[in-house]
Structures are given as structure tokens and as C-alpha cells.
């Protein structure tokens, strides 16, 4: 018994270290974003907001934010829509269901770098020049779709069909049932899926890198600055990006709590 207690204590101490390792680096970054020094790093020379001012006055970041919001919203809506229709179709056992399921998982199984490469080749041979609302948007919908499906599918599957049957018995037509019964019940799950899909698109990098044109998304713009030099405003910019992602996800999480639908464990970088 005593042994058990001791083991539990040791595990607890270890878990504290685990969380420090997880969040410590993020906190260091937050600290550095306020460091009044022209060198990215230590020593800490006092508090300042000037790096945030620099970041917010960066045209590259502002344009990228607008681009990422535009693509993120459209990709989230389109991806969720396609995923919802497929999830509804899967309520019946249809032929080749296993095969279709594998097709849905394909964008996730393909290694990230290859996911970007195949689209580079594909758009290249089709003669479609890289552009924000063409190649990047198409790539993002493709990336978001599997995750939107994986979050919606269990929820749609668990949908109580008795509700639908009751509505039909009362004389409702299929489309009416969909609009009046199915969609309202699924609404929180759909909202959560849209939010999670948005962050997925907002943070997507490697698939975007190979199909992007002149209009950069936020991670691409950030990357372009990072590979250029370790500029002192980068931690502040990183914090801004992080806060936006977390805010969007927390909103999604609030919806999830009402629906238990979206499981962010399906997130892939």
C-alpha cells in the first residue's frame, strides 16, 4: 500500500515536470516578446510593448492576417459542408463504404511534405498558377475535409433516428426533416467543426508552402521572416498568431461542450 502511494507521488512530481516542459518554452517566448532588447534572446533588459507595435505595423503580417481569415473561413465552411453531406450519407450502409473511408483518410496519411508536393505537380500540369483563392484554398479544403468528417461522423452516427422517424410519421418530407430536425440538433457540432477547421487552415504550413503565390497566409509570412533573420519582433508576432489560434479554438471548444462532437485529438500539425 505504501509502495503504491509512493509511486503515485513520484508520478505526480513527474507530471509537473511534464507540464513545465510543455508550457515552459511557450512562456519563455511570451517573456521574450516583451524584452526591451534588440537581440532576440536573453539577457532580459526590461519590459516593452514596442515589438508588438512593430508586429502590428508590419504590412506583411496584416495582409497575411486578412488572407488567412479569408481562406480559413471559406475552407472551414466548404470542408464542413462536404464532410456533413458525407457523414449523412454514411448513416446508411452504402457500397464501398470502407474504400470511401480510406479515401477520406488519404490526405491525413500522406506525409505532410508529400501532400504539398502532389498539389504542386498537379496544379503545375493543369497550368493553374499559384494563388490565394485558387490553389491555396483548394489545398486547404482538401486538408480540412478529413478532420471535419472525423469530428462530425461520430456525432451524426449517434443521431437518434427515432426523432427523424417521428417527424416522418407526422408527415414531414425528407428535406423538411433535414431542415427542421436534423440540422438544428447538429448545429452545435457543426459550429464546433467550423471553428476547428478554421484553426486547422489558419495554422497549415507545409501543404500551403508548395502552392502559395504572392499572397502569403500567416504561417507562410511568419516563415518568410524567420528564415530571413532572427529579428527581435518575431516573438511578439508569434504570440499574436498564437493568441488568434487559441481564441478561435476556445470558441470551438465552447460549442463542443454543448455537443461533445469535436474531438481535437484529431489535430495534426
Amino acid at each position: 500500500m505504501n509502495h503504491n502511494r509512493l509511486a503515485r507521488r513520484a508520478l505526480g512530481a513527474y507530471t509537473i515536470v511534464f507540464y513545465i516542459a510543455l508550457y515552459g518554452p511557450m512562456l519563455v517566448l511570451a517573456l521574450l516578446s516583451f524584452n526591451d532588447s534588440d537581440i532576440t534572446g536573453l539577457p532580459f533588459k526590461g519590459w516593452t510593448f514596442r515589438w508588438y507595435a512593430t508586429a502590428f505595423s508590419s504590412r506583411a503580417l496584416m495582409e497575411a492576417l486578412v488572407n488567412s481569415f479569408g481562406v480559413g473561413v471559406l475552407a472551414a465552411l466548404a470542408g464542413t459542408m462536404l464532410a456533413l453531406l458525407l457523414a449523412l450519407a454514411f448513416r446508411r450502409q452504402i457500397r464501398f463504404q470502407g474504400l470511401i473511408f480510406n479515401l477520406v483518410l488519404l490526405p491525413v496519411i500522406i506525409p505532410g511534405i508529400v501532400g504539398g508536393i502532389v498539389l504542386l505537380i498537379f496544379f503545375g500540369y493543369l497550368g493553374i498558377p499559384p494563388g490565394l483563392y485558387t490553389t491555396v484554398l483548394l489545398a486547404h479544403i482538401n486538408w480540412v475535409l478529413p478532420f471535419a468528417f472525423l469530428t462530425l461522423y461520430p456525432r451524426v452516427h449517434a443521431f437518434d433516428r427515432a426523432l427523424e422517424e417521428a417527424a416522418m410519421d407526422l408527415g414531414a418530407r425528407p428535406l423538411q426533416v433535414m431542415r427542421r430536425v436534423v440540422l438544428p440538433v447538429l448545429a452545435p457540432a457543426l459550429l464546433a467543426t467550423v471553428m476547428f477547421s478554421f484553426t486547422l487552415s489558419f495554422d497549415e504550413f507545409v501543404r500551403t508552402l508548395f502552392v502559395t503565390g504572392f499572397d502569403a497566409t500567416v504561417p507562410i509570412a511568419f516563415w518568410n521572416l524567420v528564415v530571413l533573420q532572427l529579428a527581435p519582433f518575431l516573438p511578439a508576432m508569434a504570440m499574436i498568431i498564437t493568441v488568434i489560434s487559441i481564441a478561435a479554438s476556445l470558441l470551438g471548444f465552447v460549442f463542443t461542450r454543448n455537443s461533445r462532437a469535436a474531438d481535437p485529438s484529431h489535430r495534426i500539425a
Partner: peptide
């Protein structure tokens, strides 16, 4: 707290090692 980092940029979480492991890190 296990979920939260999933929602932050992958590029950012990689970048942050530069000011930690670097010369002035």
C-alpha cells in the same frame, strides 16, 4: 491543457526553440 497546444501554430512552436537553444538563447 493537453488539448491547448494542438491549437497553436506548428511553425511557432518550432520557431520558439531558436531563442531558447541559440547563442543568445
Amino acid at each position: 491543457l493537453l488539448f491547448l497546444p494542438f491549437w497553436t501554430s506548428f511553425v511557432v512552436r518550432t520557431f520558439l526553440w531558436l531563442p531558447i537553444l541559440g547563442r543568445t538563447g
